[in-house]
Design a protein around this nucleic acid. Structure first.
Lengths: 145, 145
DNA sequence: TAAAATTAAATTGTATAAAATTTAATTGCA
DNA sequence: TGCAATTAAATTTTATACAATTTAATTTTA
């Protein structure tokens, strides 16, 4: 097999698929006034309400170089607050505002909207999610932070 | 199931995995002086040698907004040339240089290096590639360019 | 055939990503 | 205790992505 061909790479379909799926989120998230990475941050906050930038970065596998400006934008939208921790002044705590919490109600339809937009079955989605999650977990164990 | 949880999203593991895999390419491609998207462009050119920006964009699912600056950089590295087509002056033809062609020899080890770096089996890779490729193809048919 | 519509690239503007550096705070330990 | 090492965020720099607009060339069509 010709290994140096785009069609034989694993990386490419994964990279293209990820971008493609993100593009399907765009019109759906527009109603919420969120970009896709901003939506991911809100998903974490709807689940946990309050955590540090570092913890948020661990959940999303993003560093402060990406998160800092992103969180600043969400703060400007009044969806979250950023406060220095009293116990450790190095830590910045991110906390959901009431506005941020109430946005969750508007977001309940997003997962279903995406499934429709992608025309994908629950089974297909689950298979892919398990495969991707498993591979991701393995790679994270390979080189612990 | 709580649908608005990061762990239950398909999108997130795919997005994180794609970034993770790209990060594994970084040290490997460094030897070639290429970034990951630049490597993808070279993969296409090693296979086809000469094609228009539009055709390249179709192969990689990237638009001119992304490709134009990227191709400029590869031209500066003397890996390819950019020429206006005689038949249609709107078209810019991208062609591999000798330097660009000879870089292929240095890249022969990349696929194997990646497999080692990812600690992934051929079977696992094939399963994932087929699943991702299939889903990607279906999504592309959904809304034809 | 001349204006309108379309097309291909490039450009502009906005938003990530992520490596590397910087700053400030905390911890470990000699 | 005091200083070196570490840690958490932010900042800086470089490189994508991609929507929207612009420019120039080609096609379509009234």
């Amino acid at each position: 097999m010709e290994l140096l061909k785009l069609s034989n790479q694993l990386c490419f379909p994964l990279y293209a698929l990820s971008r493609k799926i993100t593009s399907h989120y765009l019109p759906i998230l527009e109603k919420l006034g969120l970009t896709y990475p901003q939506y991911l941050v809100m998903l974490v906050l709807w689940d946990e309400h309050k955590l540090s930038v570092k913890e948020l970065g661990e959940r999303l596998m993003l560093d402060s170089g990406t998160l800092s400006p992103l969180l600043k934008k969400l703060q400007e939208k009044h969806l979250l607050t950023r406060t220095r921790s009293r116990e450790d002044e190095r830590v910045v705590l991110i906390e959901l505002t009431d506005t941020g919490l109430s946005l969750k109600n508007m977001a309940t339809g997003v997962p279903n909207d995406i499934m429709c937009s992608l025309q994908i079955s629950i089974e297909e989605m689950d298979q892919m999610r398990k495969l991707a999650s498993g591979m991701l977990e393995k790679l994270n164990q390979l080189e612990p932070a």
